[in-house]
Amino acid sequence: MDLRTLKHRNFTVSLVLMSAGFMAFLGSMILLPLYLQDLRGLSEPADRSARHARWSGDGSARPAGRQGSTTGSAPVRS
């Protein structure tokens, strides 16, 4: 693997930030059920339904199919 690409500051910063975000995402996937069951005292079916409601909301908030392909991504405005 050619590591010369890490000399470019923008690439290195974005790689580190994406890696940190991915680790946080996976950490929440592992720790959220433990938190809900052990500390909040939810049963396993209640925990599963709480997580399923969140995932359903995440999925329905994203444009998909024909609408997502026609609208595309919008530029970031500051």
Rank of each mutant, 00 (worst) to 15 (best):
Leu3His: 09
Leu3Asp: 11
Leu3Arg: 09
Thr5Asp: 12
Leu6Asn: 04
Leu6Ile: 06
Lys7Arg: 15
His8Gln: 15
His8Phe: 11
His8Met: 06
Arg9Thr: 15
Arg9Trp: 14
Asn10Ala: 14
Asn10Val: 04
Asn10Gly: 12
Asn10Phe: 11
Phe11Asn: 01
Phe11Asp: 02
Phe11Cys: 01
Phe11Ala: 01
Thr12Pro: 01
Thr12Ala: 06
Thr12Trp: 03
Thr12Ser: 06
Thr12Cys: 02
Val13Leu: 04
Val13Arg: 00
Val13Cys: 03
Leu15Phe: 15
Leu15Tyr: 14
Val16Trp: 05
Val16Gly: 03
Met18His: 08
Ser19Phe: 12
Ser19Asp: 07
Ala20Gly: 06
Gly21Pro: 00
Gly21Cys: 05
Phe22Pro: 00
Phe22Lys: 02
Phe22Asn: 03
Phe22Ser: 08
Met23Arg: 00
Met23Lys: 02
Met23Gln: 02
Ala24Pro: 01
Ala24Glu: 12
Leu26Trp: 06
Gly27Gln: 07
Ser28Lys: 05
Ser28Ala: 13
Ser28His: 06
Met29Val: 13
Ile30Val: 13
Ile30Tyr: 11
Leu31Arg: 09
Leu31Asp: 13
Leu32Pro: 01
Leu32Ile: 06
Pro33Glu: 00
Pro33Tyr: 01
Pro33Lys: 00
Leu34Gln: 11
Leu34Pro: 01
Tyr35Asp: 11
Tyr35Ala: 04
Tyr35Ser: 11
Leu36Asn: 06
Asp38Lys: 13
Asp38Ile: 07
Leu39Lys: 14
Leu39Cys: 04
Leu39Met: 14
Arg40Glu: 15
Arg40His: 11
Arg40Lys: 15
Leu42His: 02
Leu42Glu: 10
Leu42Ile: 01
Ser43Asp: 15
Glu44Cys: 01
Glu44Gly: 06
Pro45Trp: 03
Pro45Met: 07
Asp47Asn: 13
Arg48Asp: 07
Ser49Pro: 00
Ser49Tyr: 03
Ala50Arg: 07
His52Leu: 12
Ala53His: 08
Ala53Trp: 11
Arg54Met: 14
Trp55Glu: 14
Trp55Pro: 00
Trp55Ala: 10
Ser56Gly: 08
Ser56Asp: 15
Gly57Cys: 02
Gly57Met: 03
Asp58Val: 03
Asp58Leu: 07
Asp58Glu: 10
Asp58Ser: 02
Gly59Leu: 11
Ser60Ile: 05
Ala61Arg: 07
Ala61Lys: 04
Ala61Gly: 09
Arg62Thr: 06
Arg62Ala: 05
Pro63Leu: 12
Pro63Ala: 05
Pro63Asn: 04
Pro63Arg: 09
Ala64Glu: 14
Ala64Val: 10
Ala64Leu: 13
Gly65Leu: 04
Arg66Ile: 12
Arg66Glu: 12
Arg66Met: 10
Gln67Glu: 14
Gly68Tyr: 05
Gly68His: 09
Gly68Phe: 04
Gly68Ser: 09
Ser69Lys: 08
Thr70Ser: 14
Thr70Leu: 15
Thr70Cys: 10
Thr70His: 13
Thr70Trp: 15
Gly72Gln: 01
Ser73Pro: 02
Ser73Trp: 09
Val76Gln: 09
Val76Arg: 09
Val76Gly: 04
Ser78Cys: 05
